[in-house]
Computed example of a mutant assay.
Amino acid sequence: MIQVGIIGGAGYTAGELIRLLLQHPKAAINFVYSTSNAGNKIANVHQDLVGSTDLTFTNEINTSVDVLFLCLGHGHSKQFLETHPFSNHTKIIDLGNDFRLEADSTFQGKEFVYGLPEFQKEAIQQASYIANPGCFATAIQLALLPLANAGLLQEDVHINAVTGATGAGTSLSATTHYTWRDNNFSYYKPFTHQHLGEINQTLHTLQNSFDNDVWFMPNRGNFSRGIYATLYTHFEGTLEEATQLYTEYYKEAVFTHVTEQELHLKQVVNTNKCLLHVHKHGNKLLITSVIDNLLKGASGQAIQNMNLMFGFQEDNGLQLKATYF
């Protein structure tokens, strides 16, 4: 059993990590660090874990754990690692955005690898440090990887995607209060969302000639979890050719699947799956991509990366059924 440490244990992503790790056949939680909750039972904060664990939060750190998950706010992982060194054998998976871009991927001699398994599985298997992708970035990149890999992104890409309330984290703000979110819908950060950086980085890695724009409109939905993304771009081939392109690209993917059925969120919520559907209209290809933002978009993908790094079966701890009804 590998020993696992979690830094920043009170948020949604940490709660999902703990839930998954408690059932993982190859991993054991060594500590969950939280300065604001030290001494408090984890199940008092993550109340879905009542009866599942007697672990408590701690303000003490074991610097020799086998793997460390950083569940800190964006921009805080570097600051934490600067003041809390870990052993050379400790593998690190950062769920924030500190190391996702190539310009930020080297830190204190550590080389962080971008952790999207469907993009670079072999690099992840050899890595000691992983930058876990963003939730929107995961859904959008999985919708575009087959086109970029084949050099078929020829014009602008237009994206409209909706995320649930958990995408905003646990801290209250004007747009996360129930009375505002319920029966409501809005966009935010139009065309400037921070995940565009990692999306464009991956697309250019696969298709260096791609010099068009990715137009991204993120939206807030009045549901708790999930991302529903629709993307369209120019495509000269037939629907059958597009379906074959996507099916072939993901033929060995454990969690990403192409289906002929139109998609909805209940198919993926509470799973580490990404489901994709393609539709042709004239010379436009419409791709629909759905994920659970807290699992494939965060904690589930982090566990998937851990499994790859340690040579475990890729779906260990992630054999989950969707909350369909």
Rank of each mutant, 00 (worst) to 15 (best):
E122D: 14
Q125R: 12
N30A: 12
L275V: 02
N200R: 04
T271A: 00
K26C: 04
G109E: 15
D182H: 08
D292T: 03
P218L: 15
T271W: 00
T238C: 04
T247P: 07
T243C: 12
Q108T: 03
N305H: 07
N219Q: 15
D94H: 09
L245I: 06
E260C: 07
A103M: 10
H193P: 04
N97R: 12
S77N: 12
V32F: 03
T179K: 13
T163V: 03
H279F: 02
R100Q: 15
A161G: 10
G317Y: 05
T170N: 14
E16Y: 09
K321P: 09
V290W: 07
E260D: 13
K251W: 05
Q267P: 01
G297K: 00
L196N: 03
L294D: 11
A27S: 04
I287W: 15
R100V: 09
H74R: 05
Q3V: 08
F119G: 02
Q267D: 12
F69R: 00
I124M: 11
N30W: 09
A139G: 13
I291K: 02
K296G: 12
T56A: 13
R220A: 11
L263C: 10
L101P: 00
Q301V: 15
Y188H: 13
S105E: 02
L49F: 06
L101Y: 04
G317K: 14
Y324L: 15
L145W: 12
K266H: 10
F80V: 12
